[in-house]
Nucleic acid binder design. Structure first.
Lengths: 221, 221
DNA sequence: GCCAGTATTTGAACACGTTCAACTTCGGGA
DNA sequence: TCCCGAAGTTGAACGTGTTCAAATACTGGC
């Protein structure tokens, strides 16, 4: 590891530590720099803004999520426990940073931010998250129309983003309300997906797939 | 109008003007105060933060939306053109502030912000928006299960919030992509709602209503 | 070893949102 | 009319994220 890589790693480590203990606002760039043993300007040499430090934090959460999911993906075959398990692992992994997450989320929601959930900068993490959902689908017993199945990982990722949105606003202790949402909503989603085989519903499902396809490249592109 | 009301109105007018011309970030509190002919501290006497000024901006958009909807509500009976019309009026009304909207949207997504779509501060506007959706449902020919019908205004408001989310990211000229989304998605929603009368689907709809009811008081309450 | 050019590092300086102690104006009861 | 508490107003001061010209360390060619 080169010297500059060490400096970069030290800044990320300092930021992560301070974010976890004090939250986003209370963590100043001056404090991060001091903790990392560098100057303020140096931190900006490696990270364009305070937001970019958050992206590194998000990557850590995703890596932990992926690792935590392996057990679920190896053992669960049925779609409902498989998807529920994956979402619950995320809740476990993210719990310790919930307070901080609210601050993080506003950056994820700002279209012009490099940290936007749809931004090119966050594309690698986003695509890895969608790939995880593809594993959820492929390894399950779920039977849906092929056209829908193809778009399902993206749709499930959007479902996960919906859960995260709910979670961010959830101040119940231990995030029990979000957990309740997951346990209730996943079986409903399962029913809904299987219902696409009912003649009167299949046409609607096809419409949804068509709509998603026509918009999948992003609103503004 | 009392003196203090005049001062408050002057600050709102100054903020609105500067927001429209220069956007959110470029509009400083010092500039707002100067434009309104008051001191910086005085602006904070009336508005707790810069974000609270945006709330006043929201209210202006909603008032224009409500007014613009009267024609649609008076003439359209069928659910699809009725809801489509209401959403399109919103797009018309909001178009001029699209650039500005992207900048402040991050505040609307932050749970702790007074601008959050679920915050107590925005409750009056939010409830008025839901009431508008109730008028859309009540005056239409839509037939759904009574249990679902009761929650429908809230669900339609959530749909509208989804549209706004898409709209914020939409940089196509004239927001054609969001308009395309509305024209495609509303008929699908209509089909989906009417499909709740199919035996195999009704049970799912009931599940959704139960879920929404159990969560309707908000994630954290 | 030496130099030129690049990469890295520094911290003072800037503009911002926000706070607050002090000041001024207002309203209504004696 | 006078007075006092409340309401309204002020602008300097604070801590923040970010910038930048300058200083320093590094690297490859000779």
């Amino acid at each position: 590891m080169s010297k500059s890589e060490q400096t970069r790693a030290a800044i990320v480590a300092a930021a992560t530590k301070l974010f976890r203990t004090g939250g986003y606002d209370a963590t100043t760039m001056r404090a991060v720099a001091k903790e990392a043993g560098v100057s303020v300007g140096n931190a900006y040499y490696y990270f364009g803004s305070k937001e970019h430090l958050v992206l590194a934090f998000y990557d850590e959460i995703f890596a932990a999520h992926l690792e935590g999911c392996e057990g679920v993906l190896a053992t669960e075959q049925a779609f409902v426990p498989r998807l529920t398990g994956v979402l619950e692992v995320w809740l476990d992994v993210a719990e310790s940073s919930h307070e901080f997450a609210g601050k993080f989320f506003k950056h994820a929601a700002e279209p012009t931010s490099p940290l936007s959930v749809f931004s090119p900068e966050s594309a690698p993490t986003r695509e890895a998250a969608i790939a995880l959902m593809r594993r959820v689908v492929d390894g399950s017993d779920l039977k849906v129309a092929p056209a829908l199945r193809q778009e399902l990982p993206l749709l499930l990722w959007l479902v996960q983003m919906g859960m995260v949105l709910f979670w961010v606003y959830d101040d119940s202790s231990g995030r029990t309300r979000t957990r309740q949402l997951v346990r209730q909503a996943v079986p409903i989603l399962d029913k809904l997906l299987r219902a696409t085989r009912i003649p009167g519903v299949r046409g609607i499902a096809d419409d949804v797939v068509t709509l998603v396809r026509s918009l999948v490249s992003g609103p503004g592109r």
